[in-house]
């Protein structure tokens, strides 16, 4: 579903992502982890078309994100770490706008179900300024899920959520994966990645250093020497502090 091939992203003279390739199939939940400044967000932004790759290709559902941007984006949803909402639109208006842009017909029914799933019922007419950060995050996620995307990308999805929200968010991600969506979760919360991801991709200084299931990573002698937890593997793979 998501195919990243030889992706390179350069800012000026700084190479943020260097010849990075990986694939995410339907039903897979891939954890993209790496230290600060490793190139995770740049990778996600290139995948969803916010930034153009300096080199390499990204396809979503067989559509090139640069050449067939509209078709590719129609299958995508990106939940950024900092929820971006229009301060002058209510929760329901965000959903209506999203529905129109993504050609969702039964917006009222879907919106109701999503708002209920994300504990936003009763907040339909609230403006972002009246919502907590966690609630804004949920609104952004509701907008992302509204068109039932085939590929989902989460950048630090648990930021700002309360314990109940965290549990629901994990369930939401897992249920989307089980329903056949290709999911990428970028997070520093290694226990989250360990818990919900079916595969893990580790990136460091723009370069892929590992791409395997947790069991496969644990089986590698050079990584498992330090221990068997993802945290220990991560530190070993990136040769430093996470």
């Amino acid at each position: 579903m998501i195919d990243v091939q030889h992706l390179t992203k350069i800012y000026g003279e700084f190479k943020a992502v260097d010849d990075f390739s990986f694939r995410v199939g339907p039903g897979e939940i891939v954890g993209l982890i790496g230290p600060n400044g490793a190139g995770k967000t740049s990778t996600l932004r290139c995948i969803v078309g916010i930034q153009a790759p300096s080199a390499g290709t990204v396809t979503v559902g067989g559509h090139d994100i640069v050449k067939q941007a509209v078709e590719a984006k129609r299958q995508l949803a990106f939940m950024a770490d900092e929820p971006q909402l229009f301060s002058y639109l209510t929760v329901m208006e965000h959903l209506r706008l999203t529905a129109r842009l993504y050609r969702v017909r039964d917006v009222d029914m879907r919106a109701k179900a999503l708002l209920s799933e994300l504990q936003l019922a009763g907040k339909e007419h609230a403006l972002p300024g009246e919502l907590s950060r966690g609630m804004k995050q949920k609104v952004a996620i509701a907008c992302g899920l509204l068109h039932d995307p085939a590929a989902l990308l989460f950048d630090e999805p648990l930021t700002g959520l309360d314990p109940l929200g965290i549990r629901h968010m994990k369930e939401t991600i897992v249920s989307r994966g089980r329903a056949g969506a290709a999911v990428i979760v970028s997070s520093h919360l290694l226990h989250l990645v360990e818990e919900i991801c079916t595969r893990i991709v580790i990136i460091d200084r723009g370069v892929k250093v590992a791409d395997a299931t947790l069991a496969e990573l644990q089986a590698r002698p050079e990584l498992s020497a330090a221990g068997s937890s993802l945290e220990e593997i991560f530190i070993s793979a990136t040769a430093g502090e996470p």
Partner: peptide, 9 residues
């Protein structure tokens, strides 16, 4: 960044 994720020409 948000606008560029929309499936709109």
């Amino acid at each position: 960044a948000l606008l560029k994720t929309w499936p709109v020409r």
